[in-house]
Deep mutational scan, measured.
Amino acid sequence: MIVFVRFNSSHGFPVEVDSDTSIFQLKEVVAKRQGVPADQLRVIFAGKELRNDWTVQNCDLDQQSIVHIVQRPWRKGQEMNATGGDDPRNAAGGCEREPQSLTRVDLSSSVLPGDSVGLAVILHTDSRKDSPPAGSPAGRSIYNSFYVYCKGPCQRVQPGKLRVQCSTCRQATLTLTQGPSCWDDVLIPNRMSGECQSPHCPGTSAEFFFKCGAHPTSDKETSVALHLIATNSRNITCITCTDVRSPVLVFQCNSRHVICLDCFHLYCVTRLNDRQFVHDPQLGYSLPCVAGCPNSLIKELHHFRILGEEQYNRYQQYGAEECVLQMGGVLCPRPGCGAGLLPEPDQRKVTCEGGNGLGCGFAFCRECKEAYHEGECSAVFEASGTTTQAYRVDERAAEQARWEAASKETIKKTTKPCPRCHVPVEKNGGCMHMKCPQPQCRLEWCWNCGCEWNRVCMGDHWFDV
């Protein structure tokens, strides 16, 4: 396979590697080409510095992935760790964990309700045991953590790749202090920090972006993250068709209702045909949960890209028209025109101005929308079919299609509260000796007794199943 190397943020060049090629071997190839010592090179990928003893497969490097290699003399205490030698983080029983690669970060837990604080980093599902597709590297999971809308060759929703760059020099040479644990960490600028490894760059702020994971991409090709779309790892039924499908869209209502993408497309087109989208002054033209839940309008309007190009163009047109109407304007009634106009409040005669090729020149009556006339309008008909009709959803289907309910059931079956801080902690095999993952707590306690870890627990039921 081919990976592209950008040395000291210059133009990239291809390097041929195998899945079992080590990072140090990659350094040696680059060092020979650039005429520099291999031990002064640092390989940066997806916000993480890659260790010498890791392989291309370990690092989730795919065909035509772009890695950054910078030349920086080692500072005291760094060289041993980078070589894969006596790194205290690798000691058996050590409590410190390697910062998780962005290629394996899962933010789907952050669609849980606000009262489930902490689960994004504490609760991990076991539903990723799908067998890898044919042709994928051994052991590589097909679980997708992110979804994007690819405006490039795909023109559809695709699995996405999370990447990070330095907000100062805009190069992907920043190593994160810690990985993101929720969508806010990724979507809110300057929320996460790190250290830029580019020479002479003092940058410390992280800037995240997404790429389409279905095809090789260049540095400049980015895609918009659709953070309401998630892999259906909890096997929730769709609120409309009641099938279990994946991926799904999880509405931001209190129940976190789930809808499959085909039904979401149908829901949007139906509402669009009836012009029953909601115009929100802050958000724009949007839709609420299909069950009509309060405070559930979709905030990231790129989710409506699921409509496809033709329907999305209609959505944008109707949204612009609705904006004009909300501002007190009118639409030209001549067939084939429909231009938005903003006449004076007491102006009865409205002319669709033909300047700049935008208007048709038609003069019409503001009251009856017919060709302009003197005197009273002959008839004014009330528009028919403008009443909002509820999208029919079966109550039982709505009850079963809740992301929140599956989460709470998982928590109930696989977790116990920490005796000190009461945060839910998952036990997935292993011994009875637990350690609270909350940095402010870190209590060592017994899963069996529910009390602080002691010699009695150690001698009596340390390794009970």
Results as ranks from 00 to 15, higher is better:
Ile2Lys: 14
Ile2Asn: 15
Val3Ile: 15
Val5Tyr: 07
Arg6Phe: 05
Phe7Cys: 03
Ser9Ile: 02
Phe13Ala: 03
Pro14Lys: 05
Pro14Asn: 03
Val15Asp: 00
Glu16Ile: 05
Glu16Ala: 06
Thr21Ala: 11
Ile23Tyr: 01
Ile23His: 01
Gln25Tyr: 07
Gln25Asp: 10
Lys27Leu: 03
Val30Tyr: 00
Ala31His: 02
Arg33Glu: 05
Val36Ile: 11
Val36Pro: 01
Ala38Asp: 03
Ala46Thr: 05
Gly47Ser: 02
Lys48Arg: 13
Glu49Pro: 02
Arg51Lys: 14
Asn52Trp: 01
Trp54Thr: 06
Cys59Gly: 02
Asp60Tyr: 04
Leu61Glu: 00
Gln63Val: 06
Gln64Pro: 06
Gln64Cys: 13
Val67Ala: 00
Val67Gly: 01
His68Trp: 02
His68Tyr: 03
His68Glu: 06
Ile69Tyr: 00
Gln71Arg: 08
Arg72His: 14
Pro73Asp: 11
Arg75Tyr: 12
Lys76Arg: 14
Glu79Thr: 13
Met80Glu: 14
Met80Tyr: 12
Asn81Lys: 12
Gly85Asp: 14
Gly85Leu: 13
Asp86Gly: 12
Asp87Leu: 12
Gly93Pro: 12
Gly94Ala: 13
Glu98Lys: 10
Gln100Met: 11
Ser101Ile: 08
Leu107Val: 12
Ser108Arg: 10
Ser109Thr: 10
Pro113Ile: 08
Leu119Lys: 15
Val121Thr: 15
Leu123Ser: 15
His124Asp: 15
Lys129Leu: 12
Ser131Met: 11
Ser131Arg: 09
Pro132Ile: 10
Pro132Phe: 10
Ala134Phe: 10
Ala134His: 10
Gly135Val: 12
Ser136Arg: 13
Ser136Phe: 12
Pro137Cys: 12
Pro137His: 12
Ala138Thr: 13
Gly139His: 11
Ser141Pro: 07
Ser145Ile: 04
Cys150Ile: 01
Lys151Ile: 09
Pro153Cys: 06
Cys154Leu: 01
Cys154Ile: 01
Cys154Trp: 00
Val157Thr: 05
Gln158Leu: 07
Arg163Lys: 11
Cys169Val: 00
Arg170Phe: 06
Leu174Cys: 05
Leu176Gly: 02
Thr177Arg: 10
Thr177Gln: 13
Gln178Asp: 14
Gly179Asn: 09
Cys182Tyr: 04
Asp184His: 05
Asp184Gln: 08
Val186Ile: 14
Leu187Lys: 06
Pro189Lys: 09
Pro189Gln: 07
Arg191Lys: 11
Arg191Asn: 07
Met192Asp: 00
Gly194Thr: 03
Glu195Gln: 12
Gly203His: 02
Gly203Trp: 00
Ser205Tyr: 10
Glu207Phe: 05
Phe208His: 01
Cys212Gly: 01
Cys212Tyr: 02
Gly213Val: 06
Gly213Glu: 07
Gly213Asn: 10
His215Cys: 11
Pro216Glu: 12
Lys220Glu: 14
Glu221Phe: 07
Thr222Glu: 10
Ala225Leu: 08
Leu226Asp: 02
Leu226Lys: 00
Leu228Asn: 08
Ile229Asp: 00
Ile229Trp: 02
Thr231Ile: 07
Arg234Gly: 06
Arg234Met: 08
Ile236Pro: 00
Thr237Val: 09
Thr242Ala: 15
Arg245Cys: 11
Ser246Leu: 01
Pro247Cys: 04
Val250Glu: 00
Phe251Glu: 00
Phe251Gly: 01
Gln252Thr: 12
Asn254Thr: 10
Val258Arg: 01
Ile259Glu: 00
Leu261Trp: 04
Asp262Arg: 04
Phe264Asn: 00
His265Phe: 14
Leu266His: 06
Tyr267Leu: 04
Val269Glu: 06
Leu272Cys: 02
Asn273Gly: 03
Asn273Met: 04
Phe277Asp: 02
Phe277Tyr: 12
Val278Asp: 08
His279Trp: 10
Asp280Ser: 10
Pro281Tyr: 06
Gly284Val: 02
Ser286Ala: 03
Ser296Ile: 00
Glu300Asn: 11
Phe304Pro: 00
Arg305Gln: 11
Arg305Lys: 12
Leu307Trp: 02
Glu309Ser: 13
Tyr312Val: 04
Asn313Ile: 09
Arg314Ile: 03
Gly319Thr: 07
Glu321Phe: 04
Glu321Arg: 07
Glu321Met: 07
Leu325Trp: 04
Gln326Ile: 07
Gly329Thr: 03
Gly329Ala: 04
Cys332Gln: 03
Gly336His: 08
Gly340Gln: 08
Leu342Glu: 06
Pro343Ile: 08
Asp346Arg: 13
Asp346Pro: 07
Asp346Glu: 11
Gln347Lys: 13
Val350Thr: 05
Gly354Glu: 09
Asn356Lys: 08
Leu358Met: 15
Gly359Ile: 07
Phe362Ser: 05
Ala363Thr: 15
Cys365Leu: 02
Cys368Pro: 02
Ser378Asp: 14
Ala379Glu: 09
Glu382Gly: 10
Ala383Pro: 11
Ala383Leu: 10
Ser384Pro: 11
Gly385Tyr: 07
Thr386Glu: 12
Thr388Cys: 09
Tyr391Trp: 15
Glu395Val: 09
Arg396Leu: 11
Ala398Asn: 10
Gln400Glu: 15
Gln400Gly: 14
Ala401Thr: 02
Trp403His: 03
Glu409Leu: 08
Ile411Trp: 09
Thr414Ser: 12
Thr414Tyr: 12
Thr415Asp: 10
Pro419Asp: 02
Arg420Trp: 08
Pro424Gln: 10
Pro424Tyr: 07
Glu426Asp: 12
Asn428Ser: 13
Cys431Ser: 14
Met432Arg: 03
Met434His: 05
Cys436Val: 01
Pro437Gly: 08
Gln438Pro: 01
Gln438Asp: 04
Gln440Ser: 15
Trp445Phe: 15
Asn448His: 07
Arg455Ala: 15
Asp460Lys: 06
Asp460Gly: 04
His461Pro: 00
Phe463His: 00
Val465Tyr: 15
